[in-house]
């Protein structure tokens, strides 16, 4: 099977600085893969290596099953580190020039302008575009080749909330249409809403990978009951002390949410007043910071 993205031991060093460290990354066909990490984690350097803009110090890259060389970007569209176009040309003319490089027909230009809702302003000079319009033109350029693999680096940068929602919808639509999308971001909500799978990178190393649900880990229960001390003691007896934490005047239990009814009956049966009992999901933001902290500690 030709994997859309497959890297082995991908490494980039700049002198003593290791920007990307032994990265093994696999993106499967048709999935929307979120590449998550704080600023400076190595996301853009990785994407640049995928596209051949930066030469790896070590390791290999294959896109759509093809090794580096002529034609390796056939079927691949990309927007890397913000849009960059010729300021003296209009949006439409910029895309027309890029279409010549890509070897695609002029009909694609009108199509992709329509896709990103930029047709009305396509005749204006790029220099006069707002940041959001520039970003949309960048996405349009990435779509020129009707790609099977789309690589987007922070695609919602500069977009207003409506534009961000449109972009998320476009990414989901492309994913649903069979296009594989690799999208880097530091916006957790964005990744959570559009991605099937997420890889977290910190200091150049892939420190976690999985679905959003997998990254969140086991869900649990939050319990508010009176008196708290007696409730804590009872719950520790029921599920095991190691699964119970007292947080913010309540109990956080690392147990399956399906056990809520049983637990409620046990606590009420023991004469405790249960005020609240609800499933608890780990916030992705907390997961992210935990991972980054752990990754940093591991490296140190």
């Amino acid at each position: 099977m030709n994997l859309p993205v497959h890297t082995e031991g991908l490494t980039k060093r700049y002198g003593p600085l290791t920007a990307v460290d032994d990265l093994h990354l696999t993106v499967h066909p048709g999935e929307v893969y979120g590449f998550l990490g704080p600023n400076g984690a190595g996301k853009t350097t990785t994407l640049r290596m995928l596209l051949g803009l930066v030469r790896p110090t070590a390791g290999t890259v294959r896109l759509l099953g093809r090794p580096p060389g002529a034609g390796r970007l056939t079927g691949v569209g990309a927007l890397i580190e913000g849009p960059a176009f010729y300021p003296y040309l209009s949006g439409r003319d910029n895309l027309a020039v890029l279409a010549r490089y890509a070897g695609v027909g002029a009909d694609r230009v009108a199509l992709v302008l329509d896709l990103v809702d930029l047709t009305d302003r396509a005749g204006d000079r790029y220099a006069g575009y707002s940041l959001g319009m520039k970003q949309r033109l960048g996405v349009a350029a990435a779509l020129l080749k009707d790609p099977r693999l789309l690589i987007l680096d922070e695609p919602t940068n500069g977009l207003d909330p409506a534009g961000m929602a449109d972009m998320r919808m476009l990414i989901r639509r492309l994913g649903a249409g069979g296009c594989t999308v690799l999208v880097s971001s530091h916006l957790l909500g964005e990744v959570e809403q559009v991605c099937d799978r997420v890889g977290v990178i910190s200091r150049g190393r892939l420190i976690a990978e999985g679905s959003v649900a997998e990254l969140r880990g086991t869900a649990g229960l939050r319990v508010l009951a009176d008196p708290l001390d007696e409730a804590a003691a009872r719950v520790r007896t029921l599920v095991g002390a190691e699964r119970v934490r007292v947080v913010d005047g309540g109990l956080e239990l690392a147990v399956e949410p399906e056990r809520a009814a049983w637990l409620n009956a046990e606590l009420v049966g023991a004469g405790l007043a249960v005020r609240e009992l609800r499933p608890r999901e780990r916030d992705l933001e907390q997961v992210f910071f935990d991972l980054i902290e752990k990754g940093t500690a591991d490296v140190a």
Binding site: L51, L53, L73, A84, L98, A141, K145
Partner: peptide
């Protein structure tokens, strides 16, 4: 040099041509 100044090398090369072709 304009390609460096505007950062457009990445835009052009992302369309697929090799550096030497461009």
């Amino acid at each position: 040099g304009g390609e460096y100044g505007w950062g457009t090398w990445k835009t052009v090369l992302s369309q697929g041509p090799s550096r030497l072709e461009v």
